[in-house]
């Protein structure tokens, strides 16, 4: 009886060990191959369910791309596909959809920074990868606010996982600038300490104010770099009437993002 019990117990222990070993091997395999399943959505403490479009990549960096002013981010999705093939994983959370907000620049001001902070935190935890944020236009405001909020409650080790932020044609004015009046930027600009890379189209008045914006970012301790993209307007990738130069630049979005990531990594 005692022997039978011991034998049964030993079998259970072996079985448990084999099962655990199998799980460990599977986890290691999936971790190495990058073939783990990204979540379909993220839940925030505010009760929002934020759906994600995910593009798995094998590298150890993940692009967390927030929707542009045009909402659907068609070109961002195309760029994400290309980037994933090059090894850069991409997640595109639908922040506007989670709040049934129209795809307008003004909707961006209504996105709760707390939710952005939680999306950043969950992405870092779930993926285990280094994360780079990407956003455009007015989206820069809530994303920077969310990143700031997340950084304030993260440990130094966790903070190191957030490489920086890439901004395309950011609109960070606190009030719509009027001609002849000094522009005022939102206070988040001078509080941001994340490395920042800004892309600005040459065919935009904002190009002439880029250096002012960089000075404002530098006040918060941000290491900031920028590039003026020749012969394109600010929102070249979502233009209704793109020129040949703008179409060509849109095709280069993956390359632009990879270049910016390299620059951000060198500034960490």
């Amino acid at each position: 009886m005692s022997l039978r019990y011991t034998g049964h117990y030993t079998t259970r222990v072996y079985s448990m060990l084999i099962s655990r070993l199998f799980t460990l091997c599977l986890a290691l395999f999936l971790g190495i191959s990058g073939a783990w399943a990204a979540p379909a959505s993220l839940r925030t403490s505010t009760g929002s369910e934020i759906f994600l479009r995910t593009f798995p990549g094998e590298g150890n960096t993940l692009m967390l791309g927030f929707p542009c002013d045009e909402g659907l981010g068609t070109q961002e999705a195309r760029a994400s596909q290309s980037l994933a093939r090059l090894g850069l994983e991409a997640w595109l959370p639908d922040m506007l959809g989670a709040h049934s907000l129209p795809a307008l620049a003004s909707s961006m001001d209504q996105l709760p920074p707390l939710e952005i902070a939680e999306v950043i935190g969950q992405t870092i935890k779930l993926s285990g990868k280094k994360v780079v944020l990407v956003t455009t236009g007015r989206g820069a405001l809530p994303i920077l606010q969310g990143a700031y909020m997340w950084q304030n409650q993260a440990t130094p080790q966790e903070r190191a996982a957030l490489t920086g932020i890439i901004l395309f044609s950011p609109d960070l004015y606190s009030v719509k600038p009027a001609p002849g009046v000094e522009a005022r930027y939102h206070s988040i600009v001078s509080r941001t300490s994340l490395p920042v890379f800004i892309y600005q189209g040459q065919r935009s008045p904002a190009r002439w104010w880029l250096e002012h914006l960089k000075v404002e970012f530098a006040r918060g301790g941000s290491k900031v770099a920028s590039k003026v993209l020749p012969n394109v307007r600010g929102f070249f990738y979502s233009a209704q009437d793109p020129t040949d130069e703008e179409k060509a630049m849109t095709e280069r979005l993956p390359e632009l993002i990879l270049d910016a990531i390299k620059q951000l990594e060198s500034k960490q």
């Binding site: 600038p177 009027a178 001609p179 002849g180 522009a183 190009r207 002439w208 104010w209």
Partner: peptide
């Protein structure tokens, strides 16, 4: 070189004075 644009603080095109 955008110097007039900066001095007149122009952020949007067109802006007319």
């Amino acid at each position: 070189d955008g110097k007039a644009l900066s001095a007149w603080k122009v952020f949007v095109a067109p802006s007319t004075f």
